[in-house]
Design a binder for these strands. Sequence first.
DNA 1: GGCTATTTGATATAGTTCATAACAATTATC
DNA 2: GATAATTGTTATGAACTATATCAAATAGCC
Lengths: 172, 172
Amino acid sequence: MTAPKSAAVAKPPRGGRKEPAAEPAPEAGDMMMGELAELLGYALKRAQLRVFEDFLQCVAPVQLTPAQFSVLLLLDVNPGRNQTEIATTLGILRPNFVAMLDALESRGLCQRTRSPSDRRSHILMLTDKGRATLARAKKLVATRHEARLSELLGEDNRIALLAMLGKIAREF
Amino acid sequence: MTAPKSAAVAKPPRGGRKEPAAEPAPEAGDMMMGELAELLGYALKRAQLRVFEDFLQCVAPVQLTPAQFSVLLLLDVNPGRNQTEIATTLGILRPNFVAMLDALESRGLCQRTRSPSDRRSHILMLTDKGRATLARAKKLVATRHEARLSELLGEDNRIALLAMLGKIAREF
DNA sequence: GGCTATTTGATATAGTTCATAACAATTATC
DNA sequence: GATAATTGTTATGAACTATATCAAATAGCC
């Protein structure tokens, strides 16, 4: 009931380099995890942190965070939306979305335009540079990040995992 | 204490009822999610946030955060460990673990004792109150939280999900 | 033994994320 | 036309995360 497999500690076979990265447990090899191993929330958080960490590393050449990437993705498929719509769709509060957009716009990746029909709101659009950056980021994510996840889990399992996570987020 | 007559402070719900809860997308019902629906990291984060939110609510009677609950769980199964061991096992940095322990200890849930063999380190143990609180929390988590998760996904799927998340955290 | 290096808990501090209140400009509603 | 609501924005605070540093204690080395 405890650990079905006592897999050895995954040791990165890098030679000669010290890793300052956040290791879960560099020592304490014989620590009992107890019911922590059954806690879905704990497993979710740990997996999410690891996936984000890897995402950041894979997409480093284009300097995009997961949140920024999600904004570009959404702007690409939903041109002409305003800040409130994009932000709330991503679960970002409007005040916090302002600085995010400032960063993207100052890098020339997207663009705010006053709506002629409602001059309060800003129409959001990707620039050409934004589309190019997104395309490059997409390729990095697909080939370096998601591909390795699919390899680790198996493609069928990756799809099943995606479905379950979506169900939790939507229906729980 | 000037009372500006600016509206939008506390208005009586006139007409319809708005939900101030953190809804992903209260409006924008026809938003295209694009490849966001395929991003495992995005699904992970959304699911994790939802699960933690529910955890907090379910375990509210004992006033424990997910992080605090994980500490108590670990202390219960690993009595006599020091702060560094517990913290690093949970992925918590030692400096940040100090305040966490302060909070738990000030509530009488756990206890620091100077180790006789190594007087630098603090031996950590649950108090009787800590064990009682943990037992109550466990019951709340099992019956209110995990049970509903199992019901939503199906028990077999919940186990499979747990396994995949663990694999990601350990091997990815 | 004595000197240096390391470890442990702790403090200070800064960065990041997340959340709420409030405001000016604009639009909607009655 | 007066009042209410919305949009983007600023300010601000809480919570979480990360790094440097410190005193006390221990380990390691000669």
